[in-house]
């Protein structure tokens, strides 16, 4: 028999956190070339562009993955919370 043991709030919070991180990650480093000016135009400027800008494809892929997992967790967490609340109410005779 399948059993469930879920900290629903934590799952929902994790989902929201992953989705937030996905948004932040998607925008991070998009202006690497413009930002790199601040470093003075030498070796550090070029290295900064590589460090921040040259993993764009990986970064966007990671952001997409986090976004979909975040949405899945947030939805599941919300469902578990609702279920818990519903079951709790029914056990004490409350109205759903």
């Amino acid at each position: 028999m399948t059993t469930f043991r879920v900290d629903a709030d934590q799952v929902a919070a994790l989902g929201a956190g992953l989705a937030d991180l996905a948004v932040a990650l998607a925008g991070q480093g998009e202006d690497a070339r413009a930002d790199s000016w601040a470093l003075g135009g030498g070796e550090a400027t070029a290295a900064f562009e590589v460090a921040v800008g040259h993993w764009r494809h990986e970064r966007l892929a990671l952001a997409r993955a986090l976004d979909s997992l975040g949405a899945a967790a947030a939805t599941a967490g919300a469902v578990y919370v609702d279920t818990e609340v519903g079951v709790g109410r029914s056990l004490i005779g409350g109205v759903q």
Binding site: L39, G40, G42, E43, A44, A46, A47, F48, V50, A51, H54, W55, R56, H57, E58
Partner: peptide, 28 residues
């Protein structure tokens, strides 16, 4: 002094970027 600091910073940034993540040359 600037060039020395620039080289040190550049080397540190390159070390920080020496990992498994990175885009292909063609993509860039």
């Amino acid at each position: 002094d600037f060039e020395a600091a620039d080289a040190t910073c550049g080397a540190a940034l390159r070390r920080a970027s020496a990992d498994a993540i990175g885009d292909s040359a063609a993509y860039r």
